[in-house]
Design a binder for these strands. Structure first.
Lengths: 156, 156
DNA sequence: ATCGTTCCCGAGCGTTTCAATCGGGAATCC
DNA sequence: GGATTCCCGATTGAAACGCTCGGGAACGAT
């Protein structure tokens, strides 16, 4: 299963929230700008992510979105599964009730299983904290406060 | 990138041809029946595979489709790439000229690269001969000659 | 030569999915 | 009560997908 645009937006948005996790809620406009995501679309995405207990939000001035868990306990895999369903190269191996003519006799099933396992190991083995740690430039908005932090921690 | 129905049909068809490789051309109707593929659709698929120098065909009575190479030198990966393009979890990492805003700065790129490498290793590491060797039941049509062969070789 | 068999080829079609938008509503804070 | 910000469902437009269709052309047998 390819990673859809929507899912990539979700991942980037959560990554952005992870960058700013200890600064209070992020406004949706800021997230959208930092990550080049259409605002109204991002609205849908973030709202649906609330159903996964990954993010929550506050309204009014100083409102915005924030993570419900520390970044090191949110995996890429869990976000992908929530946004676009089971991870895997083909649909039939992710379903129990399968209308495929081949069932477990399918010659290709071991192959799909191997591919799925490989993908899951990559996606489930990466947390958003890993991504934050790996990022060289931190935030793409130069004036953003998170970049100050980065500079400070470098000079230590 | 998910494996499309069309691509699965292509793989199953080539597998079927591999089963019967030393028996002359296979008629498209037989392939379609053995692998539960809509005939007119399979027609499209097999014809396009001729462009990849994987199969060729002969017309008239005793005509049909056959593999141009031994089954152990056709990989699953090469078929997938021909039918549905570059292997990978997202499009942007497969393209050189990329209209993504993030280019090589993308925090997720290492992840996509890992995922792609994992998929490629699975798909490029499997030949159709591997699939034939692994198959327990050989052909799904009980009366088919390839099953006789199987029985003979078992009794040896 | 002609007839049956089989492949050949491009055009078309209905459905679903995808990405994105829109209008208007409701909570929160000053 | 007004500014700010999130909330929610409906809708749209375009593209991809799975599949069908009609008619044509090569091959072999008789």
């Amino acid at each position: 299963m390819a990673i859809s645009q929507k899912c990539q937006y979700a991942l980037r948005a959560i990554y952005e929230l992870a960058l700013h996790q200890d600064e209070g809620p992020c406004k949706i406009g800021a997230i959208a700008e930092a990550q080049s995501i259409p605002v109204r679309f991002l609205e849908n995405i973030l709202n649906s992510l609330k159903g996964a207990d990954i993010v929550d939000s506050a309204r009014g001035k100083e409102g915005g979105y924030y993570l419900l868990k520390p970044a090191d306990s949110i995996t890429v895999g869990e976000v992908i599964r929530f946004v676009q369903g089971p991870i895997g190269p083909v649909e039939c191996t992710s379903r129990v009730d399968d209308d495929c003519d081949f069932y477990s006799d399918c010659v290709f099933r071991p192959l799909w299983d191997k591919a799925r396992a490989a993908l899951e190991s990559v996606y489930d083995g990466t947390t958003f904290q890993d991504l934050v740690d790996q990022s060289a430039n931190i935030c793409r908005i130069p004036q953003c406060s998170c970049n100050k932090k980065k500079i400070e921690s470098k000079s230590h």
